[in-house]
Design a protein around this nucleic acid. Structure first.
Lengths: 431, 431
DNA sequence: ACAGTTTCCCGTAAATGC
DNA sequence: TGCATTTACGGGAAACTG
């Protein structure tokens, strides 16, 4: 049989994009309370097959959700008992979801909810008879979010996180009608866990602290502060055209695509207020720099270095943040390696000497330099050198704290429900 | 009714991509030989509507083509007589083509043909009765090529060009079974016309000459040489992993996306042999350069400049060609503007002074410089500077001819066939 | 193994809908 | 009109298929 390409967003399991194949695993616990399976395997006359039928939004009352979808491909699949493994039997489904256009009469219903707050489910049913006894099995997935474009992925993922962080109910479809608040304690753990899961390195105390301040303002302790869903994901950060999570997720994406090894080597302080940045760099050797994510633009990273002018006063300079477009033209390590400042037309020199606190630049980034020099006779190689040009008028900037230790997180484990048939969308949480 | 986005490859009309909407225009000439239309409009009792049915590969014997397709959406459309304009009535169709998987028994049939050599047609039928007389109208499109990915577009377009260049038959579906040769005279006209149509500037005599030499070798005159279809599009250029047309089309695409204004300003000599290049630059001022398309890589452009070493000997240096990836990081004009060579670590300087023969660089390219300096307080702006680093060991290169005058081409005009219903795919040839 | 061909689907842009 | 959402499809990559 055909093996289509890849499942949707393998790392974001509870999100389904219309028109894109997705896969589900349905498992039967061998050791569930009522040991149907053990019964089965003991009876040679039974054919070891089970038809499983999948339905989208099976018994949601119409009007409960605003959009209706259906599964395009054949929604029944035979589960074969032979291929048992580690106590469970699993079957891969691959479906396509398509929107069924319905003139929605009950419009005002939950009209406040955005598409990514609308929750759906997949139901699985199986039935078999054994010596005259008919047995029905049924279960359903955790709430799902349906999107139509990857641009909605961050919003959808925020919903999945919020839901699973704040409720244990298997299917509270109205959850986002009045979403509960999260304590900063809870939330910061999830955020760190996001970074850990998607990059391999979590967030340390200082980084989380900066995030807490950004979200909640300066507080003695953020631990007990409550964060509303709206503040987390829906309202824009004051003076910015994006919400907290959109901003944070854009950084996550930037790391995944362009900064992974450097991030994992712990060379990106990243989440640092400009004040802390200055405080940290102030007394360091000239040419000491650190790497910080932009707070003003989505998915940007900049470096700030310290210099001293003639009267010994510290001066902080930051470059215009590099975004994914610029980084795909030139990897960040190479930018750091070759960065030059030309002052009043005078000979360029790389002002970046030591990664804070005192790691020689090449020692930190050397193994990530990309020797782009591909010699193709008869041409002479050409490379791109990142360069700033200055007059003699400099704006000032400033900076944060010492290196960081990762946090470990493993909340929200494989939330398998105690049903006869247990389901998981790939596995509800990565790793 | 819904207005879907855009038609497929609006500039390459006779090519259809599966899974992508395409549109057809069907026109009724008001002044066709048998003036059905005039008849119609004179009779008030007739309803002024005509149902037109579209069929894909209507009466091609099965096995004649290797792949079978069908039109996904409704294939009949009502043409309304009211909306007449400039002597014709036109209707837009929008369809989706889908492959019908057929176990092809007659495989060996035309197995030598590639997908882009397989020709198809769209047929249009209409029927109406007038005072008891039934009238049938029918016509079909020029041969079409069906592709499944844009990567096949160049090959498909080559077929369309070759067909329309070399035959006037309305539908010789077996054309590529034994495709005729083209004289260089004919072919060079088409090539120049391609550039003219897609960029706004054609190819001059010198450029065409270089192309002729590339395709046919050195000849006293190429005019009467014959070029085979295979040589044009199927066999690779000696020592290269691509055919002549693939190479040329990659340059066309490069121009369209990254070099349009410079090309149209006539500042890209482009098609120049390395020998000619040297000959041209040899006696020019040091720092004189010209722009040439790469012959070794698909879609690349390089510049070559001349220097003189201590004993007055001319030295030719070319950079590694810039491809679309590099050009999307930095526009070509800015590369020329800021290009630097650092020799033995010594102060960079832009070696590019005069565009051949003697146009000061900034005069030629100044209006295309992109002042990328977007000042965002408190950051200092950063730009990419293209730079080559040299030891003191230089390879040599060489170069072509004076500026160029465009050629004008208008072959292959709206090839409307003398039918009652006339058809055109958007318009068979651009402009 | 491999080349020709198709499928898959992200990401941007445009269209649509509310 | 503007914003939220969907559709369109180019383009790179993976999968498929003979």
């Amino acid at each position: 049989e055909k093996q289509p390409c890849m499942p949707t967003h393998p790392q974001k399991p509870l999100i389904i994009k219309t028109g894109v194949q997705f896969s589900t695993k349905v498992s039967i616990s061998l050791f569930s309370k009522c040991s149907v399976f053990r019964l089965l395997v003991k009876l040679p006359e039974v054919d070891y097959q089970l038809k499983i039928k999948t339905t989208f939004d099976k018994d949601l009352p119409p009007g409960r959700v605003n959009r209706q979808f259906f599964i395009l491909t054949n929604n029944t699949k035979v589960m074969d008992f032979e291929e048992s493994s580690n106590g469970c039997l699993t079957v891969d489904f691959r479906h396509l979801l398509k929107e069924k256009k319905v003139i929605n009469g009950t419009k005002g219903n939950e009209g406040l909810l955005s598409v990514t707050e609308e929750l759906h489910t997949l139901s699985f049913e199986a039935n078999f008879s054994i010596q005259g006894i008919s047995i029905d099995l049924e279960t359903c997935s955790l709430p799902l979010v349906v999107i139509s474009n990857v641009s909605q992925l961050p919003g959808g993922w925020a919903s999945v996180m919020w839901y699973n962080l704040l409720t244990n109910e298997p299917r509270n479809m109205g959850f986002f009608g009045s979403p509960p608040r999260a304590s900063w304690n809870q939330l910061s753990e999830v955020l760190g866990w996001q970074f850990f899961t998607f990059t391999g390195r979590g967030l340390n105390k200082e980084q989380l602290n900066m995030l807490g301040e950004k979200l909640l303002g300066q507080q003695v302790s953020h631990s007990d502060c409550q964060v509303s869903w709206s503040k987390f994901c829906k309202e824009n950060i004051l003076g910015k055209p994006f919400s907290f999570w959109m901003w944070l997720d854009s950084i996550l994406e930037l790391i995944k695509k362009h900064l992974l090894p450097i991030w994992n080597d712990n060379y990106i302080m990243g989440f640092v207020s400009k004040e802390t940045e200055r405080a940290l760099l102030k007394d360091q050797e000239p040419g000491t720099f650190l790497l910080r994510f932009s707070e003003s633009h989505l998915g940007g990273i900049t470096f700030t270095w310290v210099e001293h002018n003639d009267n010994g006063e510290a001066k902080f300079i930051s470059v215009e943040p590099y975004t994914k477009n610029r980084l795909s033209a030139l990897p960040f390590a190479d930018i750091i390696r070759n960065y030059k400042v030309m002052v009043d037309g005078v000979v360029p020199e790389n002002p970046l000497k030591f990664l804070y606190p005192d790691i020689p630049k090449d020692e930190a980034f050397g193994r990530h330099y990309n020797s782009q020099q591909n010699k193709v006779f008869p041409y002479i190689p050409s490379m791109l050198v990142p360069m700033s040009t200055l007059d003699s008028t400099l704006p000032l900037c400033s900076s944060p704290e010492p290196p960081m230790t990762p946090g470990m997180f493993d909340m929200l484990n494989q939330q398998l429900r105690p049903f006869e048939i247990e389901t998981a969308m790939n596995s509800p949480y990565p790793e």
